[in-house]
Amino acid sequence: MNARNEPAAGGKVRVATASLAGCFGCHMSLLDIDERILDLVELVEFDRTPLTDIKTLGPCDLGLIEGGVANAENVQVLREFRRQCKVLVALGACAVTGGIPAMRNSVPLAECLDEAFVHGMGLANAGIPDDPELPLLLSQVHPIHEVVQVDYFLPGCPPSAEAIWSLLTAVLEGRALHLPLAQLHYD
């Protein structure tokens, strides 16, 4: 039930994005390029991203991954992105290092389950969700380079819109990415 446009016409660059164990802040920082998005759509074609209704991934020039790897579905989506994308980017602290969600790595999983669903505050009933529709949870949150090869790492939580714009223009112009120091930050 998926429809996509014909292969990008007129040399448009095909871009896909995904949020794994992230907060969507990196996607928001992409939108923080503001009016430049109006020009960007002339130059790129979006494939699967949370902004479109394309639900399966086709061959792409650029894949942006937000968030680390926390469950089986994340692993599957990430591997699919690596297969389909010529250039794969770890976008932001969570993809680069695991980020804040990786703070759970120091806590045994069972304790987290217990806190949320058994002994947490205000619960009317206790019971840990276990339906087969829910993807398997990994015991640790991993940065994406531990699972696939990554071409570029963009630090920051989130990376600035300027840094993301530098990345996009570099890919559009087919040159290597060099970020000016002023665009790099780690908070």
């Binding site: 999983l109 987290c112 949320a116 276990d130 829910l134 398997l136 949870l137 990994l138």
Partner: peptide, 9 residues
């Protein structure tokens, strides 16, 4: 919140 995983991975 955290949940339980129904499989092995």
């Amino acid at each position: 919140a955290l949940g339980q995983m129904p499989l092995a991975l």
